[in-house]
Amino acid sequence: MNCDELAALLPDLVDGALSEAVRAEAEAALPRCPQCQQELEIARQVHALLFQLQTEHASLHIPAGFESRLLAKVRAQNSGKEFLDLSSKAFAEWLLEFIELVGGLLDPRVNGSLSPHSGTVS
């Protein structure tokens, strides 16, 4: 086994995923490839370090009722959006009515009493 072949097996060596025969062959080739040997040691350390931190959570389950809480939150967000949409629509309608009303009040043809000249005309 040459260095390139050995390098390709390093991830499986870290995880112990090789058959006994291949593992033995790879380990026998390690002393001939110092780069592979060094990388294997580093990768094993990192894997062990990160994995060790997780061993306390080996049988992790989602908390009771979490799925319902999550769906409730999604629904709340969804209905919040609808409410916002409705509010914006209602507000736009109200604004249009208000503009018409104000426009009507300022327009002398609609309400003659607001005209500065209304008294003189009559």
Binding site: A8, L10, P11, D12, V14, E39, I42, A43, Q45, V46, H47, L49, L50
Partner: peptide
């Protein structure tokens, strides 16, 4: 994927 994970472990060790 195996080689990318291997390189990620090496990069992790350097930064660590």
């Amino acid at each position: 994927v195996k080689m990318r994970i291997h390189r990620a472990r090496l990069a992790f060790q350097r930064l660590f």
